[in-house]
Design a protein around this nucleic acid. Sequence first.
DNA 1: TACGATCGTCAAGTACATTGACGAATGGAG
DNA 2: CTCCATTCGTCAATGTACTTGACGATCGTA
Lengths: 157, 157
Amino acid sequence: MSDAEGTVPLARLLAMAYGDLIDQLHARLRADGWADVRPAYGFVLLATRAGSQSLTELASRLEVSKQAASKLVESMVAADYLTYVTDGGDSRVKGVALSDRGRRLLAAVEGIYADLEAGWAELIGARAVETMRRHLLTVVRARHDGELPTVRPPDGR
Amino acid sequence: MSDAEGTVPLARLLAMAYGDLIDQLHARLRADGWADVRPAYGFVLLATRAGSQSLTELASRLEVSKQAASKLVESMVAADYLTYVTDGGDSRVKGVALSDRGRRLLAAVEGIYADLEAGWAELIGARAVETMRRHLLTVVRARHDGELPTVRPPDGR
DNA sequence: TACGATCGTCAAGTACATTGACGAATGGAG
DNA sequence: CTCCATTCGTCAATGTACTTGACGATCGTA
């Protein structure tokens, strides 16, 4: 589809651009030796970066069921991106925190994103990249009472 | 996560913005009576808008297996968004085209997107919306030999 | 002490995808 | 005209990721 068929909706462009960035992110992670990173891991790392949280809290942030969150975390613990921690003395609560390897992965992801954005800056200009960032922040915050939401795993279901 | 924690990567902002647009799109579709629209339908409608195609071609465009495409199409035919057509005299080939209802849905989607973009224009300015569109076109085309790809259904799996 | 609420696990189920085999149809070489 | 390689779409089997609701253990409050 070309724009000879009219203006391309922003939603499609956002989807394409996002898909490209994610494809490139994972390609570079694999090239750098991060072979076992599933797409959903990024959302968990982001949700956990500020500190440990319970499975139930994580499930809520990701907008999935407790069991889905539990299985996701289980596989990330097995891959040593997360670690279980004791959290506040309540034996019911299973605390989840970034492991050292998880922090390194998060740093790698952020480095690659910076790199990809530098590529965008070459195409459209560094100022345009910052303007786009600012405008996207504005429209997203407008929908979330001024805050940024966590991003749930995308669901085609 | 706030930008007190540093610059928010564009990928995350794109994901949030896209998720918001899709959520609003489906909420408005439901409000307008389009009760049975699954997220994956949009990709098929888009891939089919230019004219009929075979199941195998559609599967290729959506980057899914032939069976996945077949099942998706089957449910869209049942919902009267698509129709099977005779295609080119090759009895092996199952042609798939938009139905009248499918065309109306596509028009409804485009109208809603225009509306949502008008909302963005109120927040960041109409010129900023067009600038963003142009810049996104640039960066996406740079990755696809000057063309725009079809957008495959997102897969967090 | 008792009870309602919470946490995380479990079982059962759903949706959507994959791979590879297969039969029918096609087209081209011999 | 025949034969064979290829293509199309369906089928079966399988896998992944998710859901709901029940349940036992734990907690906090009355």
